[in-house]
Design a protein around this nucleic acid. Structure first.
Length: 205
DNA sequence: CTTTAGATCGTCT
DNA sequence: GACGATCTAAAGG
């Protein structure tokens, strides 16, 4: 995998307007996620994602066109964020995709920490870099993404907080694995869809 | 390494 | 009133 100067280019809105949420989930592997909170920058390379495919996906919060106050965000045009509280504790971070009216989203499940390591360790109250952001609840906590920010646009600012994505690493398609999504046993046959994407474990040589 | 139980609260029924 | 797109600590192998 490599990263040239284009790695710092911000992902444009068109990237999130795709009508193929599974492809977007795959393409987000290797991209960079960044947040800025009151002047503190944190960033990480996206290492794990899951696609959630609108009204026909039994695993999606918007399955069966369930338009509620919470899921309304998912119906927005691609490029805003959907953050919700899970198990009463964890903020889970999604990017909304597709055109307005179609509630597709990609759950970001893990990042490889880059910048702002000290701040992320402090937010997570740990000194172990290996378990810093390797789960959807952990990365949100490490990067300061709170469910109260649900609905904002990537790149916009609210109460001193902003989140966006950059090009990151390209030419990594050979390093991506796929498999069934996690924690959605209730979704019947849709639980088998290979809509989870991960970076392969890198072995040093 | 694996398994297991407990925490905790907004959202929807 | 039930449950969940999870995490942690503790205990055992």
């Amino acid at each position: 995998m490599d990263q040239n100067t284009s790695g710092k280019r911000k992902l444009d809105k068109a990237f999130f307007l795709s009508d193929d949420v599974v492809q977007v989930a795959r393409d987000l592997i290797g991209k960079r996620l960044l947040t800025l909170q009151n002047g503190t920058l944190t960033s990480g390379i996206i290492s794990e994602t899951e696609a959630y495919g609108g009204v026909s996906d039994k695993a999606s919060h918007a399955y069966g066109d369930r338009r509620t106050k919470r899921t309304e965000i998912m119906y927005h045009e691609g490029g805003c964020i959907y953050v919700y509280l899970c198990y009463g504790i964890h903020s889970l971070f999604n990017v909304v995709t597709n055109k307005e009216g179609i509630p597709d989203a990609v759950l970001i499940r893990g990042v490889i920490p880059e910048k702002g390591m000290d701040e992320m360790l402090r937010r997570r109250n740990t000194t172990n870099k290996r378990i810093l952001a390797d789960g959807p609840g952990k990365l949100s906590q490490a990067m300061g993404i709170h469910h109260s920010y649900s609905g904002i646009e990537l790149g916009s600012k609210l109460n001193g907080f902003s989140v966006w994505m950059e090009q990151g690493y390209t030419s990594i398609s050979g390093l991506i694995t796929s498999g069934p999504r996690i924690g959605i046993d209730y979704a019947g046959d849709d639980a088998l869809l290979p809509w989870r994407f991960k970076l392969k474990k890198l072995t040093l040589q």
